[in-house]
Design a protein around this nucleic acid. Structure first.
Length: 908
RNA sequence: GGACGGCUAGCUCAGUUGGUUAGAGCGACUGGUUUACACCCAGUAGGUCACAGGUUCGAAUCCUGUGCCGUCCACCA
């Protein structure tokens, strides 16, 4: 074995063999319980980020643990076509070549985009392999695959037939760069420092009298069709029925009252521009006002804005209109104003509220979706996201699902040629299209990407075709066991998948019906949802491409190994808390693997013969009579650890699980047990038993770690001979109870008191080391000690004598009947321990040390005494606690006395 | 404006239902190559648990309020 673990060779070799052996295949197996996860499909043209590393490592841990436990496990991978993002990239590419999409035409463009996708896409799936992800690659799905696309259209058609989908001219969020509508969820609100302009509008029946309006968007004044005031505003009675003159593109416009106007904001007077503001649009509807749209689709002003402004960009026009108003004397005031402006998620420009014909979806099964989570049929980890989810559903708005793009699923609606598109009589809605296509033209738009990915759990498993569903095991694997994703897509994806599952899984039901709880449980797409935190850099900033603060995971794998990266990232990822990334933690992950490697190497050096050791074989090598207190103690700790880690895995507490493993492995096993066993391994009669105990510990540690660090554990599993020909992938770590039973069946019983005894011995060793270190004695410098203790304590001490000597680096620790003088003294639970220094001691230094010691003891003692002298404490606190305090007091008093004696001895 | 999360050692974080003297890793400092590992071992220093009240025999932990940082939601132009 190499001196240091070399991950690269091991990882490539093992991954290849796992894949070759079909370890990752997820096939329905009625004889086994099912476990399934669908991957949150990454953007097909994306590359692996730290976020993906976290997310997919968690999924891999879950999948690998399920396999170990004997579940038939499916982790289904795939990619998303990512409508706007991909189309934008492809168009950019075209532009570099001096072309645009219209040069290619719709079909040509799609062909081109597909080629581009196939060339640049799918990289991320290769990268996931490097990370060790155990996806069933044969089942990789892409949202634009033919089967999947059909499912998307089928869902649209069914929703349409059930009255959930409608077409309408409504206010939508318009991206003037991507030239498409967006859903509310794709709009990011950003605080902006703008200006609030105060404008005057002249009353037409009273020249020289004005009304004042505050606005942030003077460039839309030409679209004003009214002014509005709150009906309870005292000015209203005087204004009712009167009119004002619009200061740009002059026209007479009415004054009206609407309670949506805030009396106390600005001048209490609102200009109504129905074409360019959602609230104004609503008010306009209520009052039957006309709509004047003064913008083009790309955010420039059109001819209705007047010749002066026509053709200008909206922000340019803002300046120009302000200038014009100033010239006219209509600009009264201008002040700094902070407000929130919606930005397009992709193009990062302010969205424009815009009136347009779009397809909308009224969400199905909203009430059932709430119940599914509120009642815990779907469990959220951490639970607090439940509230966020429910709040969104309480206030849910219809979903604009049409996008003015070419890259995506084209809406399966056809309009009769030459007829009015607004009349449903002229619509044909079906997956296959009309029989006489020559008389129809298909809707130009495609569906929002999320309107395809919301079907992910069912459409990847054959829906809607019965035979495909059977073949792919929909009924076997669905509901999937767990979903692992970020809380940032709780609305985009999680909530929508729940509604899609409820609506589409199982037999179609009447839209007016309500699903029973039983039916809900069958239809939900997943049982547990684990929300990861967001990975931030050392400064706490979100990792992003634009900031360039995200390390390339592949570089990290190269440097630290996939296992190191996985271990590192999982050890810093508390459940649902944001994660401060630091490369040092990844380094620690690598170090951990190296430690595991080396202790295994040490184990290998002890014996030359290669063995095949099943659990029973190892247990068979143990001779109960040869078990010493160390053995009892480490096995007791092992049982504890097995239970603890199992519980923590079940609760998705991965970092705590790793910490528990770390404590047992590094501290208990390596630092203490293995160190102590070195003497025994020289060839004492208990050597075999001692090695068997090591094997037990290593075996269980490998099993516990395998989900997190699959490569090194599989490699060592074989090297150490635990495999019996079977991969570690198919072997579960026994629970503490199962392990205890196995021990009992092998005739091994553990002394429960050994653990406490061992901890006391450790404490003694630590103080003795410290005493040496205080005097700058090298740890390998053999020093002689004597001690003074009661018979009982002495017995225990003698039992551990050899390991104490080697751990401390002591030549002797012998019992004396009387306190020696002039030696540094330790007051311990075992009595007083004295260090014999040939060179004599520094009396002053000793005195200082002991005085400090006494001071500490004094503080502790008085605090306990205070507590115990408090009558209400002794009366009200549980007897156990009071008893504990008494014992503690007695112990400390004894120590205090001994320390005082030692101090006095120094004075002589 | 509403909701949620965080605030514990220089840094990153643990701290289970309130109960001995608040822990770990990293970093710092000191010493160390004894039969695995310097990607290592031993030891030391370092904390008014954000702040203010309250409940309790007892609070890092429960309650109320405040501050700072972060996230999400929201039609004050």
């Amino acid at each position: 074995m190499e001196k240091a673990y070399q991950p690269k060779e091991v990882e490539d070799r093992l991954y290849e063999s796992w894949e070759r052996e079909g370890s990752f295949q997820g096939n329905p197996d009625p004889g086994k319980p099912a476990y399934s996860i669908v991957i949150p499909p990454p953007n097909v043209t994306g590359v692996l980020t730290m976020g993906h590393v976290l997310n997919n490592t968690i999924q891999d841990i879950l999948a690998r643990r399920a396999r170990q436990k004997g579940h038939s496990t499916l982790w289904l991978p795939g990619t998303d076509h990512a409508g706007i993002a991909t189309q934008t990239k492809v168009e950019q590419q075209l532009r570099k070549d001096g072309k645009n999409k219209h040069d290619l035409g719709r079909e040509g463009f799609i062909e081109h985009a597909k080629e581009w996708r196939d060339k640049h896409g799918g990289i991320i799936l290769k990268q996931l392999r490097k990370l060790g992800c155990s996806c069933d690659w044969e089942r990789t799905v892409h949202t634009l695959d033919a089967d999947y696309s059909e499912a998307v259209l089928e869902a649209f058609v069914r929703l349409f037939k059930n009255g959930y989908v409608y077409r309408g001219k409504r206010m939508v969020n318009w991206c003037p760069v991507s030239l498409t509508a967006l859903s509310d969820e794709e709009v990011i609100m950003k605080p902006q420092n703008g200006k609030l302009f105060k404008i005057r509008y002249e009353l037409t029946d009273a020249p020289g009298e004005y009304l004042y309006v505050s606005t942030t968007r003077p460039e839309t004044i030409m679209g004003d069709v009214a002014l509005a005031i709150h009906p309870e505003d005292e000015r209203w009675p005087k204004l009712k029925g009167r009119k004002v003159r619009r200061p740009l593109q002059p026209a007479e416009i009415p004054i009206l009252a609407d309670s949506a106007v805030e009396k106390d904001f600005g001048t209490g007077m609102l200009k109504i521009t129905p074409a360019h503001d959602p609230l104004d649009f609503e008010i306009g509807q209520r009052h039957d006002l006309p709509i004047i749209d003064v913008f083009h689709e790309d955010g420039t002003l059109n001819e209705l804005a007047g010749p002066e402004f026509s053709g200008m960009d909206r922000f340019e026009a803002r300046k120009a209109t302000v200038e014009k108003l100033r010239e006219q004397g209509d600009l009264i005031d201008e002040e700094d104003h902070a407000n929130n402006v919606g930005f397009s998620e992709r193009a990062d420009v302010p969205v424009e509220p815009r009136l347009s014909e779009q397809w909308f979806l009224r969400y199905p099964r909203v009430e059932e979706a709430k119940r599914a989570v509120a009642e815990g049929f779907i469990r959220y980890f951490p639970e607090r996201w439940k509230k966020t989810y429910l709040h969104w559903l309480e206030n849910i708005q219809d979903w604009c699902i049409s996008r003015q793009l070419w890259w995506g699923h084209r809406i399966p609606v056809w309009y009769r040629k030459g007829a009015s598109r607004t009349d449903p009589e002229n619509w044909h809605v079906s997956v296959a299209g009309p029989d006489d296509p020559e008389n129809w033209e298909q809707d130009e738009d495609v569906l929002d990407t999320w309107a395809s990915s919301w079907l992910w759990p069912i459409a990847t498993m054959g829906w809607p075709h019965k035979s495909a569903m059977q073949e792919k095991g929909l009924d076997y694997f669905y509901p999937t066991s767990a979903l692992v994703t970020g809380p940032d897509i709780i609305f985009f994806w999680v909530a929508r998948m729940i509604m899609a599952g409820l609506e589409f899984k199982g037999e179609p039901v009447d839209p007016n019906s309500t699903l029973s709880d039983e039916e809900i449980k069958k239809r939900i797409p997943f049982r547990d949802v684990y929300f990861t935190g967001i990975i931030r850099d050392a400064k706490g900033r979100k990792m992003s491409k634009s900031l360039g603060n995200s390390p390339d995971p592949l570089d990290l794998i190269e440097k630290y190994g996939a296992d190191g990266l996985r271990h590192g990232i999982m050890s810093i990822a508390p459940k649902g808390q944001d994660i401060r990334f630091s490369e040092e933690r990844i380094e620690q992950g690598r170090n951990f693997c190296n430690k595991l490697w080396n202790v295994s190497r040490f184990r290998q050096m002890a014996e030359d013969d290669t063995r095949e050791s099943s659990l029973a074989d190892i247990l068979g090598r143990i001779d109960q009579n040869q078990l010493n207190q160390d053995d009892h103690a480490i096995l007791l700790r092992l049982v504890q650890t097995l239970d603890e880690v199992d519980r923590l895995y079940e609760e998705y507490e991965f970092n705590s699980a790793l910490q528990a493993i770390y404590r047992f492995f590094w501290s208990d096993l390596c630092d203490w047990y293995v160190e102590n066993s070195k003497a025994r391994m020289k060839g004492g009669e208990d050597k075999t038993t001692c090695l068997a105990v090591q094997d037990l510990c290593l075996r269980q540690v490998l099993l516990l770690l395998h989900p997190v660090t699959p490569f090194i554990t599989e490699e060592l599993w074989k090297v150490l001979g635990f495999s019996g020909g079977q991969s570690i992938q198919w072997t579960v770590a026994e629970t503490g109870e199962e392990f205890s039973i196995a021990l009992r069946n092998a005739g091994i019983s553990l002394d429960a008191s050994a653990l406490e005894e061992m901890l006391a011995i450790r404490e003694l060793v630590t103080s003795m080391r410290s005493l040496k270190a205080d005097r700058n004695l090298a740890s390998n410098k053999k020093v002689e000690f004597v001690y003074l203790a009661e018979d009982e304590k002495s017995k225990v001490l003698e039992k551990h004598l050899s390991s104490i000597l080697s751990s401390v680096g002591a030549a002797a620790l012998s019992r004396v009947k009387e306190a020696p003088s002039g030696m540094p003294t330790l007051v311990t639970d075992f009595g007083s321990v004295y260090m014999d220094l040939a060179s004599g001691i520094d009396v002053d230094a000793e005195r200082t040390r002991l005085s400090k010691e006494l001071e500490g003891l004094g503080k502790i003692i008085s605090s306990i005494e205070n507590k115990l002298s408090n009558a209400s404490f002794t009366e009200k606190a549980p007897a156990q606690v009071v008893e504990g305090a008494r014992r503690q007091l007695a112990d400390n008093l004894a120590k205090q006395q001994e320390t005082e004696e030692a101090l006095n001895a120094l004075k002589n």
